[in-house]
């Protein structure tokens, strides 16, 4: 494992820690999109079906279980925790996220890695992850008051995707010299969706201003 990949995984993990920290310490999920979190549950469960069929390493298995477990926990807090659920920005979190699922599934059937159940679902999870942030970005645009932890969460999530691209470039030259269209193009799309957010996040950080996204 190279340093970019490790940094990407750690950034991803840190983003989840930040989100859980916000939820548990402030007892609030204001500004967090339940739609995006639900999509992540689907992404992780469909991607990590190979937990049952293939052992790669302790690190790999532990991370997969952490990603599945924390995404389910976050949705649990937002839907069922009696205090936290009352802080959910329900009226602003209106993206019809279920509409993203059929096109991603059809795309996975048309362009799977291999035509087997696990590889089709893996491809589906890659396509769905690429667009899963959209409800969250829309919610941020609609929020007049984005708190620091929410801003940091989305920034770390975007940084994780950017680091994965660097990891692929590094692996291409040092290991395989093989082209991997499905994750590369999906990963580029996913990272590009954060471009606008990154711009305003870094600008607000440099100017010591509160983060606001223009609608």
């Amino acid at each position: 494992m190279n340093i970019f990949r490790l940094a990407g995984d750690m950034t991803h993990l840190l983003s989840i820690v930040v989100l859980l920290l916000k939820i548990r310490t402030t007892k609030s999920c204001a500004g967090i999109s339940l739609k995006t979190q639900e999509l992540y549950v689907i992404v992780f469960i469909t991607r990590y079906l190979d937990l049952f069929t293939r052992y790669v390493s302790f690190y790999n298995t532990a991370m997969k279980l952490v990603f599945i477990g924390t995404s389910v926990a976050i949705v649990w807090y937002m839907r069922l925790h009696k205090v936290v659920k009352q802080t959910y920005s329900r009226d602003e979190d209106t993206f019809k996220h279920y509409l993203l699922i059929p096109p991603c599934f059809i795309l996975a059937l048309l362009i799977p890695l291999e035509f087997t159940v696990t590889e089709i679902l893996w491809s589906f999870s890659i396509y769905l992850e690429a667009v899963a942030i959209l409800p969250q970005l829309l919610l941020l645009q609609r929020s007049s008051n984005i708190d620091n932890l929410t801003g940091s969460y989305v920034f770390l999530l975007g940084a994780y995707r950017a680091l994965y691209i660097v990891n692929w470039v590094y692996r291409f030259f040092t290991e395989t010299h093989k082209i991997r269209w499905i994750p590369w193009i999906s990963g580029l799309v996913q990272t590009a969706l954060y471009a606008d957010f990154f711009y305003y996040y870094i600008k607000s950080w440099k100017n010591h201003e509160k983060l606001r996204l223009p609608a």
Partner: peptide, 10 residues
Amino acid sequence: NEQPRPHDEL
């Protein structure tokens, strides 16, 4: 002809 995925990636 997509290459098989590296199974070590998350």
